[in-house]
Design a protein around this nucleic acid. Structure first.
Lengths: 251, 251
DNA sequence: CGCGTTATTGATCCTTATCAATTCCAGTGG
DNA sequence: CCACTGGAATTGATAAGGATCAATAACGCG
């Protein structure tokens, strides 16, 4: 896999969509800004060529420069603890933003890697800060973005701490499903861009357990899965499972 | 326990320390601002009378108005999942800020409660936003504050997902110890403001397990604990435990 | 001093980790 | 085109850590 970081030219190449044309502008940073303000934002956004599967977007410890909005594809982020264990901290889909852990120490705490062919918009943070001082709506969106990341991270606590393997896997699948729905994609049939092992790591399980849960969910005809392809047969049942604190699929 | 929210008069009562006098100003929001800018911040800060143990600072679902810097005492925050289970999301000590989950949905996702007699500075967020547009250093501090919350939340992932009960408890104690040290308080002898059950909930354990770990740690003379009083006898050994991914104190 | 809450300690069970073997698949090269 | 190969996934057997249930003890507060 190619491990070179992609480069972002100072001014984006022609031929890439601008924010005002982007169909994600209603869930991304431009959310509810005026056209003229979106143009100002657009002027500092840098669009490079797509990352390939396995490409690293940034590495833990690198100086913080930009946050990245995902245009297409998907990204995983992870931290490395001091004894070298890796903990996946999130999977990010189009319209979502990675790198928000950067401002804390002015360097990235996470590493970020493309799970498939992925296009991102790089937004240099210092320029974004400056712009958001002039555009109150943008400042507000930025605060919301950070705050939302806090909120989703905290949701994960309950999942990791207190729930059965079944609930954890179901939760992840439901979360992905909802996010697909938001993009007007099928919420019931989509590809899982990450490996079982990635899911397991993210959910605080082993890959064997994840695999077994997949098995059970298929046995019950709640999902159909073959490798990376997922079809949710009974969305209601899956949601049910995802929201139960401890319940599991007693075989 | 008194469940009334405290009220914050529009302009603070006399006799409360201002930011420029506050010994926490080097770790709180005013961090590395100029005196004149700190005064501007100070002008929007509201200081009420202290909360008592059990007092609610804000409740999940309430409209978001302010973030709160803790001056003395301690606060716990928690989320309530849709099936009514409570998950403690953090313990906050002086100089730390709660309410950062508010901007996401313009309402608090967490509830916050005083664990002991606690003084807080309320900072109305819309006024803070406005001010931070004029004071770039303040805006930067705010972004850092949010980003740091993301970072500490993500650290918790690895703990909850992958580590032994011993490691989790040790981690919490080490974290508290380090934060006490930052305030020039003893890092080895302090009071635990929260119950065993709170710790357990936060760490994704049961209170019985937490109690047992305390027992083991005392057996090994790593800590001495009696109820809420904690003395760390061997800080090194505790840190060791806290950083090991899976190791546990096989009895 | 007595009650209720909080913490400790003990015995047992269950879920999931761990270890191990096998299968499946994608990609490769002959 | 098909056999090979190596990573990913599945499946099975076992064991361990922590949850659960239960009883007791210690403390704080009125």
């Amino acid at each position: 896999m190619n491990q070179q970081p992609p480069h972002f030219p100072p001014r984006p190449g022609r031929g890439y969509a601008h924010c005002n044309d982007c169909r994600l502008s209603n869930i991304c940073l431009p959310l509810s800004l005026e056209f003229s303000d979106i143009d100002k934002l657009d002027a500092i956004v840098q669009r490079g060529k797509p990352l390939q599967r396995g490409d690293i977007l940034y590495r833990s410890g690198e100086p913080f420069g930009a946050i990245y909005a995902i245009r297409s594809g998907s990204i995983k982020t992870w931290r490395t603890s001091r004894d070298g264990e890796e903990q996946i901290t999130g999977f990010y889909l189009p319209g979502e933003v990675v790198g928000l852990d950067g401002p804390a120490e002015d360097s990235y705490a996470n590493s970020a890697q493309a799970l498939e062919t992925t296009s991102v918009c790089a937004i240099p943070f210092s320029r974004l800060e400056a712009l958001s001082r002039q555009v109150p709506g943008l400042q507000r969106n930025l605060f919301q973005l950070l705050s939302r990341e806090i909120s989703t991270d905290q949701k994960q606590f309950g999942l990791l701490g207190r729930t059965s393997a079944d609930t954890r896997v179901a939760s992840l699948l439901v979360s992905l499903s909802l996010r697909h729905e938001r993009h007007k994609l099928s919420p019931t049939t989509f590809a899982l861009p990450m490996s079982r092992s990635d899911m397991a790591n993210f959910l605080g399980l082993t890959l064997e357990t994840v695999s077994r849960v997949f098995g059970r969910l298929q046995q019950l005809d709640i999902i159909q899965a073959s490798r990376k392809e997922l079809h949710i047969v009974q969305p209601g049942a899956l949601r049910e499972l995802a929201h139960s604190e401890s319940q599991n699929l007693c075989r």
